[in-house]
Amino acid sequence: MVTDLVTDTMPGGEEMASFSCRGCAGDDVVPVVDLGAQPCADHFPPVDTPGEDPRWPLELWLCRGCKLVQLGPVEPQLPEPPLAVESATSIAHAEASVKELLADHPDLNGRVVFEFASHHGGSWLDHLRAAGCRIATGDERADLVVDVHGIAHEPAVGEMMKLRADRLAPGGLLVLEFHHLLPLFIGNQFDTIRHGHWSYLSLGAVIRLGALYGLAVESVQRIDMFGGSLRVMLRHEDEAQPDESVLETLQDEAAAGISDEIQLAGFQEAAWHAAGALHDELVRHQQAGRMVLGYGAPSKAPVLLDLSKVGTDLLPFTVDAAPGKHGRRIPGCGVPIRSIDDLRAVQPDVVLILTWDIADEVISQLEADAGGWGATYLVPLPEPHEVVG
Rank of each mutant, 00 (worst) to 15 (best):
M1S: 15
V2N: 14
T7I: 14
T7V: 15
T9S: 14
T9W: 12
G13H: 09
M16P: 06
R22I: 11
G26N: 05
D27M: 13
F44Q: 03
P54H: 03
V69A: 09
V74A: 09
P79E: 07
P81R: 07
P81S: 08
A84G: 12
A88W: 12
A88M: 14
H93K: 07
E95W: 07
K99L: 13
D104M: 11
P106Y: 01
G110Y: 07
S118P: 06
L125Y: 13
L125T: 15
L125K: 10
L128F: 10
R129Q: 14
G132E: 05
T137E: 15
D139V: 10
R141N: 02
R141H: 04
V145S: 01
H149F: 15
G150L: 08
I151N: 01
H153V: 13
K162P: 09
P170I: 02
H179N: 14
H179Y: 12
L182R: 02
N188V: 08
F190S: 02
D191W: 08
R194A: 15
H197G: 07
W198V: 09
I207M: 13
I207Q: 12
G210R: 06
A211F: 04
A211D: 09
Y213T: 06
L215Y: 00
V217S: 01
R222G: 03
R222F: 06
I223D: 05
D224P: 09
L230V: 08
H236R: 15
D238E: 13
S245Y: 02
L247I: 10
L250R: 01
Q251S: 07
A254P: 11
A255V: 09
G257N: 06
S259T: 14
E261D: 10
Q263H: 13
Q263S: 15
A265P: 05
E269C: 11
A270G: 12
A271L: 03
A275Q: 04
L278Q: 02
V283I: 11
V283A: 07
H285C: 06
Q286F: 03
Q287P: 04
Q287M: 10
V292H: 00
G296H: 06
V303F: 01
D306E: 11
S308G: 05
D313F: 01
F317R: 00
V319K: 00
V319F: 00
D320G: 01
P323H: 04
K325H: 05
R329E: 00
G332P: 05
I337P: 00
I337T: 00
S339I: 04
V350D: 00
V351E: 00
W356G: 04
D357R: 14
D357Q: 15
I358K: 03
E361S: 01
L366T: 06
D369A: 13
Y377T: 03
P384R: 06
